[in-house]
Design a protein around this nucleic acid. Structure first.
Lengths: 192, 192
DNA sequence: ACCTGACTAAAAAACGAGAAAAGTCAAATT
DNA sequence: AATTTGACTTTTCTCGTTTTTTAGTCAGGT
């Protein structure tokens, strides 16, 4: 009970400060102060500052990912699931970019972090997209020659579009294009 | 005659050294030495180091762009033109990434340069893609609601896919995905 | 008009001292 | 035994100064 309380409190407080000042400008001391804990307590739960940051980012990832999965679950068919998946994914990235305001100013230095965390979820995501496409095929909505390849190709595109968010904040500009791309993509795989 | 000789020689030599060491690690002194010219000669033709670099990159761009245009010209119909355009564009980027080896280690710091240079060609490229799509519509190959939006969307995707080349060198992996994307995309816009 | 090389100004790198921050751990508390 | 603390050590960062390197200049030569 108390165990979870301290750790969660640290993560929560750390999230607020990291998201505002970024990794480098945030000290472990100020996190400790804000959490009303001794610095040693933080090192009891997290091996180092990096692991704390990783914990914060993963926690945020989990939250946003639940929203993503939920949006798919309430879709009526595979086409809608796919469209919603892509839209909400973009919105998720947009939220993350806004949450981590400080990330924008120094994206490259955070890249190793981001890659490390996302590596955990990449396999999961490709499984998700594949199952999406498979159910579309099984429901006679889609006709796809190679589901694995199509899923990989789609994720490659989506990942390529992430960086503009972090660097340029061009969400509004990109959204219309995304919607057009979604409709072309779905038209390209739908059963005739 | 002599005019063009010295300037071209400087550009050529600068291209070799910049491509190997990148902008920051290359000195104007060593370019001058390698070209067997005095440093003042370089400043006779180029206002500053940046303009020299820009000259080198533009020269390379021109060469690669001619190949791109040529590959389109020998295509039989709009579908083939579009597919070839995308494939050769990716190959072009791949070549550029290999040529500028040093860019890979520090891609984002070069981004302002690249953006400045490419701004000159962006309008041209969107015009090219739009004319491609338009001819497809006029030939009854494609049906597209909004050519401008579709062209923008496609270019957004293609630009997003450039970054893996510079960061990860995964050309072989990307190519298959690109081919699948091309066929889906064309299927998505072709007339039924 | 083109080219040179000595020179200047600016930028970058190196350095050392001190401050700040990450991390440690014995002792205290629960 | 698990959790927490706070004084302490080690590591990293910052800053001002000095030195070196580099970009750029320009009078003079061809």
């Amino acid at each position: 009970m108390r165990i979870d309380n301290t750790k969660e409190k640290i993560l929560h407080v750390a999230g607020l400060i990291f998201s505002k000042f970024g990794f480098h400008k945030t000290t472990v001391d100020e996190i400790a102060r804000a959490a009303h804990k001794a610095k040693g307590s933080i090192y009891y739960y997290f091996r180092n500052k990096e692991e704390l940051f990783q914990g914060v980012v993963e926690k945020e990832f989990q939250t946003l990912r639940s929203e993503l999965v939920a949006s798919i679950d309430k879709s009526k068919n595979a086409k809608e699931k796919l469209a919603n998946y892509i839209i909400v994914r973009m919105q998720t990235i947009h939220k993350l970019a806004n949450f981590y305001d400080a990330l924008k100013n120094d994206y490259l230095s955070y890249l190793p972090f981001i890659e490390k965390i996302r590596a955990k979820y990449d396999n999961e995501e490709i499984v998700l997209v594949k199952s999406l496409l498979t159910s579309g095929v099984n429901n006679n909505e889609f006709e796809i020659r190679d589901i694995e390849l199509t899923a990989s190709a789609l994720l490659t595109v989506l990942k390529g579009l992430e960086i503009p968010f972090f660097i340029n904040e061009e969400y509004m500009k990109l959204e219309n294009r995304m919607r057009e791309l979604i409709s072309i993509f779905i038209r390209g795989i739908e059963k005739r």
